[in-house]
Design a protein around this nucleic acid. Structure first.
Length: 315
DNA sequence: CGCGTTTGACCGGCGC
DNA sequence: GCGCCGGTCAAACGCG
């Protein structure tokens, strides 16, 4: 079976429009459906149709990423999107990570203060549309954000907030070529069952809109700072000026422009999200929300801001 | 008070 | 050995 050639440490990307410049800078999906016109290329993503996924994804692979997707009524989240496989070079690296991880696990139970760095963590990489991010039912707490070299967008770091001892981590960054597409990397597995509800609304970003000018000015300052020093060394500060809230603003600006305040249209974007887990649509249309947007016309193409408990885009 | 984000500082892997 | 860079820590602060 073809899937075996890719290795079990396959990286699964969920998006019908897969593209990941971090890996190859290409946007050359090969759609397997409906005529199975398969061309293998190390530099192309291989994208499966729904039917093909069922056929090609082995139980083992499914088992691998099972901890990361939401199972709802027997249908998993990923099956809702098309799934792509990352080229062989990446798989090799992931496999090496897995091997090293196994070695570590077999030889030591010591848990250092700083977790093992590169090449020692099992990883699953997904590429998701913004609305797919809302399907993540785990509770995540953001613990850092860093600009990444070569990418205009910062990467946000999340850890599982449901269980103290849970080592599950999640990194989210926006695809630099596809607006609204996010590269989500899951590291380690949850050591507990999925929470029935996510955490409270405390610390939501909603309140951070009121003084949007300040926010933007701050971002501009950061951009200048970043231009002066293109190597934002050693800081999780958002030197590129893309804070979570600005992305959220950006996204809604787009909606506003395209849909002319068509509330129904926007509402539909959030269908399927747990209504308890995101800020209500009505809340979004309250004065504060769009009042904040009016001040913002700088063309930041940016990253998503989210507290999982309050907004459907966990970034 | 608990839980969230933000962000500067720090750690350590890795390439040269 | 050095510096770059990704990942994490933790203090400060906000919100419900």
């Amino acid at each position: 079976m073809m899937i075996m050639d890719w290795g079990l440490q396959a990286v699964v990307i969920g998006s019908s429009t897969s593209c990941n410049d971090h890996f190859h800078g290409g946007n050359n999906n090969i759609d397997f459906s409906p005529n199975l016109d398969f061309q293998e290329s190390d530099h192309q993503y291989l994208s499966f149709s729904h039917e093909m996924k069922k056929e090609f994804f082995s139980d083992e692979l499914e088992e691998l990423y099972k901890p990361f997707y939401h199972v709802d009524g027997g249908q998993n989240m990923l099956m809702g999107s098309s799934i792509s496989l990352i080229p062989k070079e990446i798989i090799k690296e992931e496999k090496r990570e897995e091997e090293q991880q196994q070695v570590v696990a077999a030889t030591s139970t010591y848990v250092p203060k700083y977790k093992k760095r590169k090449n020692e963590q099992k990883r699953v990489v997904l590429q998701l549309k913004a609305d797919d991010l809302s399907s993540d039912k785990w509770a995540w707490r953001k613990y850092g954000q860093k600009p990444i070299k070569g990418s205009p967008y910062p990467r946000s770091y999340y850890r599982c907030s449901s269980s103290k001892g849970c080592l599950a981590r999640k990194q989210v960054e926006q695809s630099c070529t596809e607006t609204g597409t996010f590269i989500v990397t899951y590291t380690a597995e949850h050591n507990h069952s999925q929470p029935t509800r996510r955490n409270s609304l405390a610390g939501t970003i909603k309140s951070k809109f009121p003084n949007s000018k300040n926010t933007i000015n701050s971002h501009k300052k950061n951009i200048v700072k970043n231009e002066k020093n293109s190597s934002p060394h050693g800081s999780t500060s958002n030197n590129l000026g893309f804070s979570p809230e600005t992305l959220m603003i950006d996204e809604f600006q787009e909606i506003e422009i395209n849909q002319e305040n068509d509330h129904e249209e926007i509402k539909s974007m959030f269908e399927g999200s747990d209504e308890n887990e995101c800020v209500s649509i009505q809340e979004m249309f309250d004065g504060d929300f769009f009042a904040g947007l009016e001040d913002i016309h700088d063309g930041f193409s940016s990253s998503f801001g989210c507290n999982n408990s309050t907004f459907p885009f966990p970034f």
